[in-house]
């Protein structure tokens, strides 16, 4: 694979990250915001894989495994938080959660 497609792969990671960023900014539903964070983490992992392929080293893939682990832990804690917010406020609107009344 030529370097042109390395740059294309990095550009793909940038586009996916930007889509996740837009979604985090424009969505008001808190589950959609969590999904967008997953998209952004996935794009960052893609950039690491591209770098690992460019220098034929396994370090990029190892960093992707770490990102994967972090995403799994983050989504479980985030979903538990979403369940609590939904039970307390009866809505998924993230604007409704601006007061931490405990």
């Amino acid at each position: 694979m030529s370097t042109a497609s390395m740059e294309a792969a990095l550009l793909l990671a940038g586009i996916l990250f930007m889509l996740g960023l837009i979604s985090v900014l424009i969505r008001r539903n808190i589950i959609f915001m969590l999904i967008s964070v997953e998209i952004m983490l996935n794009a960052a992992g893609l950039a690491f894989i591209v770098a690992g392929t460019r220098w034929v080293q396994p370090d990029g893939q190892i960093m992707f495994i770490f990102i994967l682990t972090m995403a799994a832990a983050e989504v479980s804690v985030g979903l538990a938080l979403i369940l609590q917010i939904y039970h307390q406020l009866k809505t998924l609107n993230s604007d409704a959660a601006n007061i931490m009344k405990g």
Binding site: M1, I31, I49, G52, I65, L68, V75, S76, L79
Partner: peptide
């Protein structure tokens, strides 16, 4: 890109585990 093991992990963990967790919630 020459990372077949990561492709398998992507499908198993992201598409398998994380999305199913969100669907359950």
């Amino acid at each position: 890109l020459g990372a077949p093991f990561m492709a398998a992990l992507e499908i198993i963990i992201y598409a398998g585990a994380i999305v199913v967790l969100i669907i359950f919630v």
